[in-house]
Every structure is written in structure tokens, then in C-alpha cells.
Design a protein around this nucleic acid. Structure first.
Length: 469
RNA sequence: GUGCCUAUGGUGUAACGGUCAGCACGCGAGUUUGUGGUACUCGCAGCACCGGUUCGAUUCCGGUUAGGCACCCCA
């Protein structure tokens, strides 16, 4: 019987409820909604704590290592990247958001920032500044790649560049900054490092590599056969099983370094040893941008131990294909871009990816990143207490207190609930009575003890109480 | 850009060729007209889109879009 009743009530109620709603769905078609443009993503408040922490970590590192902040435009002349990154690189050939501006000039959204920084260095005569010039940046980059987890068409990079310093100490310093970024965030990473020598050395090595691979042509996958002509260095990237033995025996770049490059690389590694930064010598690490020489490195998330404890099959860890960050030396870039010959190097950290890896690491290890913390919560009752309360809130803001509040709530109960969820130690309550008496109630959330305090003394009282915790 | 997989409320998920698409979290209101962590009640919110098969499709098929995986490349 009760069932029937319920049914009956519902069937009567529902249509009525629909009618009473402000002329909606039934009568008028819903307005069109817009989806995100492919490869774009919103960074939502729920992720704010991660982004904030990343930014502050980068900012703090920049401050300590004395990098000055630089922000270059998102829009640059297309030629800037064609010249610096090099024709034939995927970034330039396939992934640029390039278009014609209204005056017919060819512009594009920056796919990376190093080229812009080289331009800015030259444009603003930074070679006259005390050397080295150390710069850092934070901002979105654009590449028209196929989106995947941690791979967006608009993505954020934090980058650090050192211009005007050839000393291998600079290489070590840059790697140290990258390493510290992850260390400070608590993301375990591995550094892969290699030296690709000078242009001439690299050319000689390429020749040798091609010769070697030609002799093994029969064992190679189709893709590698194509790479042999198109981009020999990429042969070293091949993941095809059959090519692995060939790869293992392949000549190594470091054996083809001249004495200068070799000494430079050795010193970089010595620095890293001294710093205790773990690294993997990676003979197959070559980078996709033309401007690099000598030291190149990449940062990878250290594989978290698989979740095999509960009989789970070792599924691949998702979204960990790419490097979190990477960089290297580019001694020829400034000159190539029309400036005075200036050595340089830098690296970029992929923030979106790093946060993804960070979240995965936290999830695997049951770690939680703290969000906003409040010292106190302010609960109000009635219009008068909102009016007075807002004034009090603002005075507490000036006093440096972090106060939670929600004037959209009218019941004390719901405000207490919020305060409880925020885990604040104290709640300040202001009702009609307190407005008249010019007092407030201070409630200790743990003990439940409340005291009435003069409004003028509230700030001092709260501060004292907070100190005791 | 190539190949493959996936698509259920804001989130995580369940079920089904056919009576109101279930649950949890969340959010809102209340039980308590000035007091939190529990409990209960009520409410909010969904079958991505377009087409086909069918008496009937959220379920089957095709396409689109989006997401994911591998490749490619890189951050």
C-alpha cells in the first residue's frame, strides 16, 4: 500500500513541479552550449592548489638562483621559430598555430619560449648587462599536436634560461633548478642526460650512425628505414622490438665528441655527482629542436611502484609517455638569431604534465596536497550583522587574518557546518544581539567553549588564541 | 597526423531491446524559528550528438564529436 501511495503522489507531483518551474525545457529549446576547442582545457579552482604550489615553487627557485622574470608575447613572427627551432622539426612543420595577421604578416602562437627570449635578449641589448643574464618565465605555449592525457594544444611551461655563460657550472645549475622543482613539490623524478656535441661533431656522428645502420638494414623496421634518410638521430628513439639489438650496438654520440665537448660534459657530470643528483646517461637522448648543442637532458617521472599488491595486473601507468621537462645548451642560438655570439642554455618544465604526474604520485602514495587554510570562520545572522560583519571582516583582513565566510547562507547551522568542513579552530559569531552590544562570540571548535568579546578586542583575542595552538 | 579503445547526473559508478535509468559522493532545504563533525526526511542533477535497424533503443549498427591508449613528437 505505501508503495502505491508513493507512486501516486509522485505521478501527480512531478508534472506540477515541472509547470511551476520558470518556463523552461518544455516550451523553449535549450540554448546552445559550447564545448572546448580541441586540445584546450580549463584549469578549475579544484586544481588551484597544485597550480599555485607549482608557481610559487618556480618563483622561489628563481629568486634564490637569481633569475629575473621575463614575459614575452604569445604572438610572434612565424619566422622566429622557423629560424631558431629549425625547418624539419615537427614543432615547426606540423604543430604551429600559424596564420596571417590583418596586415598580411605571418604570425603564430608561440610553441615554446626560448626563441622569444633570444629575440628579447637581442632586442633589448641584454649583452650589455652583467653576464650571465638569467631569465625565467611562466606561461602558455601552443602546439597543434594530437591531444592526450598531459598533452594539450595549449599548455603551460615554466622555463629558466642562462645567457652568456659557457661554464659547465651553468649546466649543472640549470639541472639543479629542474631537479629542485620536483624535489620541492615531492614528485620523484629521474634525469636523463646526454651530450650531442657541436654541430660538426654531430654531423660526423650522424654519418657514422647512418653507415652502421645501413649495414644492418635488413633487421630494421619500416619506420627506421625511413628515418635512415629523413632524420637519422631519431633512429635512436625507435621502440620497435626488432630494432633494439641494432640500437644497443649502435655507435654512441659521446664517443664522437671532440676534446672540448667531452671535457665540458665530464665536468657537468662531476657537478651532478657532487650535488648528488641521480642521472641516467642516455646515449639515445637527442632533442627535437635544432638549436641544442652539448648538454641535453630530460626529466621523467620516476615510475611509481606498480599497484600489484592487490593482485592487479601490471597495467601500464597512464599518461607517463612524455618528459616532464627538458632542456639543454644552445651556444649558437643568439648568434644565429642575429645577436652577438653568446653561449646559453635553458630548460622548460611542462606544468600540466607535472601536475598530472604529481596527482598520480599522490594517489598512489595516499598523499594529499593542502588547499587554502583559514584561521577563523565568520558566521553572521541577519542583515545587520552582514553589514557590520563585512566591515569587521575587512579589518581582520588588514590584520592579516585569513577568514572564511559565506554571506549566502542565512542559517547558523549551515555556517557552522562549513566552518567544520574548513577545519578552522575558531568561529566568530555575530548575531542581532551582538550587533547591538558591539560584541562577538568566539567559539572554540574543538572544546565547544564560547566567550563573548568586545568587537574592538576580537582581533587581539583571536590572535592570542591562534598563537597558543 | 596514423592505428585501436571508450562515452550514463558536477564526480565515481549500476542495470536494461519495452512500465518512473538505480546507487554513492556532491549540492540545496529541513528534522532543531541563534550553533558543527553522526543520523533521518525531502529535493537538485544524467543516457555526448546525428542518423539507421526495430512495433519500440540509453541498450544493436553507422557516422560525428570528445576523451583515452599506442605510434609520432615533445613539455
Amino acid at each position: 500500500m505505501p508503495k502505491l501511495k508513493k507512486k501516486f503522489v509522485k505521478s501527480v507531483k512531478k508534472p506540477e513541479a515541472k509547470k511551476s518551474k520558470p518556463a523552461s525545457a518544455s516550451s523553449e529549446p535549450k540554448a546552445k552550449t559550447y564545448a572546448l576547442v580541441r586540445g584546450m582545457h580549463d584549469i578549475l579552482p579544484r586544481d588551484e592548489k597544485y597550480w599555485k604550489k607549482c608557481f610559487h615553487t618556480a618563483e622561489d627557485l628563481a629568486a634564490f638562483f637569481q633569475f629575473g622574470r621575463i614575459e614575452t608575447p604569445l604572438l610572434e613572427e612565424t619566422g622566429l621559430f622557423v629560424r631558431s627551432l629549425g625547418r624539419g622539426t615537427d614543432v615547426v612543420d606540423k604543430e604551429m598555430y600559424a596564420f596571417e595577421d590583418k596586415d598580411g604578416s605571418r604570425v603564430c602562437l608561440r610553441p615554446e619560449a626560448t626563441a622569444s627570449i633570444a629575440r628579447a635578449f637581442i632586442n633589448s641589448g641584454m649583452w650589455n648587462a652583467p653576464q650571465p643574464v638569467k631569465l625565467w618565465y611562466w606561461g602558455p605555449m601552443f602546439r597543434h599536436d594530437r591531444p592526450q592525457a598531459g598533452r594539450y594544444r595549449q599548455f603551460f611551461q615554466a622555463g629558466f634560461e642562462v645567457l652568456g655563460m659557457a661554464d659547465p657550472a651553468a649546466d649543472a645549475e640549470i639541472i639543479l633548478v629542474a631537479f629542485n622543482f620536483y624535489k620541492d613539490l615531492g614528485i620523484p623524478v629521474e634525469i636523463s642526460i646526454n651530450s650531442i656535441g657541436s654541430l660538426a661533431e654531430r654531423d660526423r656522428y650522424k654519418e657514422e650512425l647512418v653507415n652502421y645502420y645501413r649495414s644492418k638494414r635488413g633487421y630494421l623496421c619500416a619506420e627506421c628505414k625511413a628515418r635512415l634518410n629523413r632524420n637519422p638521430l631519431r633512429l635512436l628513439d625507435c621502440k620497435e622490438k626488432d630494432c633494439q639489438p641494432v640500437k644497443a650496438e649502435a655507435p654512441k654520440m659521446i664517443d664522437w665528441l671532440g676534446p672540448e665537448s667531452s671535457a665540458h660534459f665530464t665536468k657537468v657530470l662531476e657537478y651532478l655527482d657532487e650535488l648528488g643528483i641521480p642521472y641516467n646517461l642516455c646515449h639515445t637522448l637527442v632533442r627535437g629542436l635544432d638549436y641544442y648543442n652539448n648538454t641535453v637532458f630530460e626529466v621523467y617521472p620516476a615510475l611509481t611502484p606498480a599497484l600489484n599488491t592487490e593482485g592487479k595486473t601490471d597495467e601500464p601507468v597512464v599518461g607517463q609517455q612524455g618528459a616532464l621537462g627538458g632542456g639543454g645548451r644552445y651556444d649558437g642560438l643568439i648568434e644565429q638569431m642575429g645577436g652577438r655570439a653568446t653561449p646559453g642554455l635553458g630548460m622548460a618544465l611542462g606544468i600540466d604534465r607535472s601536475i598530472l604526474a604529481w596527482k598520480q604520485h599522490n594517489e598512489a602514495n595516499k598523499l594529499v596536497v593542502a588547499g587554502n587554510k583559514f584561521d577563523i570562520y565568520f558566521a553572521q545572522l541577519g542583515e545587520d550583522s552582514k553589514r557590520v560583519g563585512l566591515r569587521l571582516l575587512d579589518s581582520w583582513r588588514l590584520a592579516g587574518l585569513k577568514v572564511g565566510f559565506n554571506f549566502g547562507k542565512n542559517s547558523l547551522k549551515s555556517q557552522m557546518e562549513i566552518a567544520n568542513n574548513l577545519k578552522v579552530p575558531f568561529v566568530i559569531i555575530l548575531g542581532q544581539k551582538e550587533v547591538q552590544d558591539q560584541t562577538v562570540i568566539i567559539r572554540d571548535m574543538e572544546s565547544g567553549v564560547q566567550e563573548v568579546v568586545d568587537q574592538k578586542k576580537a582581533e587581539a583575542t583571536i590572535k592570542k588564541k591562534l598563537e597558543k595552538i
